[in-house]
Design a protein around this nucleic acid. Sequence first.
DNA 1: CATCTGTTTGCATGGTCTGCAAGTTTGCAT
DNA 2: ATGCAAACTTGCAGACCATGCAAACAGATG
Lengths: 227, 227
Amino acid sequence: MDMGRLGLREMKKQMTRKTIADAALQLTEEKGLDDVTIDDIAREAFVSPRTFSNYFASKEEAVLGAFNLGVDQVLDDFSSRRPEGPPLQTLCELMYDYARENPTQLRQAAQVTALELKNPSLRKFRVEREVEMIGQLSYRLGECTGTDANTDLYPSLVAAAAISAVSASLAIWSLRGLPDEDLPGLIQDAFNMVSDGYPTQRRTRPTRPLRNPSDPPQDLGIAADRP
Amino acid sequence: MDMGRLGLREMKKQMTRKTIADAALQLTEEKGLDDVTIDDIAREAFVSPRTFSNYFASKEEAVLGAFNLGVDQVLDDFSSRRPEGPPLQTLCELMYDYARENPTQLRQAAQVTALELKNPSLRKFRVEREVEMIGQLSYRLGECTGTDANTDLYPSLVAAAAISAVSASLAIWSLRGLPDEDLPGLIQDAFNMVSDGYPTQRRTRPTRPLRNPSDPPQDLGIAADRP
DNA sequence: CATCTGTTTGCATGGTCTGCAAGTTTGCAT
DNA sequence: ATGCAAACTTGCAGACCATGCAAACAGATG
């Protein structure tokens, strides 16, 4: 039997996980993470403190668990693609599409930035996740470009550049107050800047318009093949 | 009075700090950080556990404290410079010079990578430091290029690119076994790759020779002004 | 020397993490 | 349905960690 794709057991587990994560997030927003104990979170989520530890290794992981960044999914998409064209361009397209199609998750991701301002202990954990992503992406880039991520600079640098592009876009978007529909444009700008070699002092397109005909974002990647 | 630039009190403090950090490092290499307690480190350093906590907030900080990366110094140098030329080129020059002049400290920095393989809990703390550096650098870049790091992508992206270049160089250098005199070349390669927009599949120059006349590293930054 | 300040230390407290064993729920096959 | 096995929850215990406080101590200063 298939039990609707997922056994009752697994369903409950996912639900418990989400309940705990949400409780952690809510309490953190209320009182600040430093004034929240694992016992508080467990009580709020109707589980024992011991069970909390079965799901998350720390308060911080729980809070971050409330955000399903979904970027992993993009990385999976990238991994399953046939290598064609400059990796940065592919990644930009994937991220751009993802940002347009999943505004909610991206909005959540950007909220982490705000949380971090009031709860600095979260930072370690978020950036560790980012570095983890860079590692995976770097490995995959090595595979599909025929370079060795352990020997060659190329995969690590490209991976780091791509993740920074997204990360920086989210940060700025957050500081701008999360204006609707702005993020995909920011992401494209970031990738363009990266693959153009960081042209000096070119300013980021202001909040609006999203599309500026005189500065077409489609020029992406052309710089990536120049010797 | 000046007491030879530094009072006895301050001298002792620095010495205690270093003693603790060294003890932390040694024990970590012996037994692995997970099997080392703060009490162990304190005993090894002839201080009370309470004093350990006066100096470091955690075991991990203590271990990292044994490495004086000195990159902060480079950032200070950068901050005190008159803005001229593309920032990435300036940063490359500074880092290149620093790498040539301070092989010991760079070697130490690269050793952190090795430590991380056996002690994953260190990672969080190291990358947090890196992100901290990106933040500072980004702020300074905003200042000296007339852009706002809170609004504009440019400063954050350049800062992230520069730090990744160094970080990736160190990682690969470490994996290659820290061959003498290789690092400055790697750093230049990394910065070149960054400021050329990550040309696809260009392979990193092999371990030797350090200087390859047919691939002059002096072409740095020329891509940074192309519109 | 006398005093003032900053450091070390022990102690106490509250919080976190992990293993273990007992009890409960779910999955699955009969 | 019934029963068994695997997985999950929970309480408890033990080790570790972080921090405030106050007393003792040592360097600085005049």
